[in-house]
């Protein structure tokens, strides 16, 4: 499985920024991985890559569930952390965002089951050290295969 490796919070954000620069409206990024693995920092980088002003704080949406940002393309930052159990996400109307004019980045995306769009990029964050994180990338849809290849090319694993 293709992967990139980050050695710091800053590098995690830089990888996110690289991805953000490649995104276009309607793209869907599913993030998975434990607490403290870097999903929010990665999304902060994606926001910068999408042209969200550095003056804007991209904070965790764990409580709000959804934060929206204005950039080159709108960013919809979801966090399904609090959706343990069988909460019916369809009732929230989130699927209206999924095929919209912005980019969706969804933390704890594995809690989406039938609501997951047909094509998506999935990044799983794995804690491999105190500050080291391995991001394993999988996808559905050929566009996301190309995005993955580009991201891995930009951030090759250090020997």
């Amino acid at each position: 499985m293709p992967a990139v490796v980050s050695h710091s919070v800053e590098e995690t954000a830089a990888i996110g920024e690289s991805l953000g620069k490649l995104l276009r409206p309607g793209d869907f990024i599913a993030l998975a991985g434990d607490l403290g693995a870097g999903k929010t920092h990665f999304t902060q980088g994606v926001a910068r890559g999408l042209g969200v002003s550095p003056d804007i704080c991209v904070a965790s949406p764990s409580y709000t569930l959804l934060n929206e940002y204005t950039g080159r393309i709108p960013l919809y930052h979801f966090d399904l952390y609090r959706l343990d159990g069988d909460g019916d996400i369809r009732d929230l109307g989130f699927d209206e965002y999924f095929s919209g004019r912005g980019v969706c980045v969804v933390e704890w995306a594995d809690r989406l089951v039938s609501e997951l769009p047909e094509e998506y990029l999935r990044i799983e964050f794995i804690l491999t050290g105190d500050t080291e994180r391995r991001m394993e990338i999988s996808w559905n849809g050929s566009r996301y295969g190309k995005l993955t290849a580009e991201l891995v090319r930009m951030h090759p694993a250090k020997a």
């Binding site: 569930l65 952390y81 609090r82 959706l83 343990d84 909460g87 996400i89 009732d91």
Partner: peptide
């Protein structure tokens, strides 16, 4: 409580 957080559908 059983869910460890707010489930919005339950909430509304």
């Amino acid at each position: 409580a059983p869910f460890g957080g707010v489930v919005p559908e339950i909430a509304s």
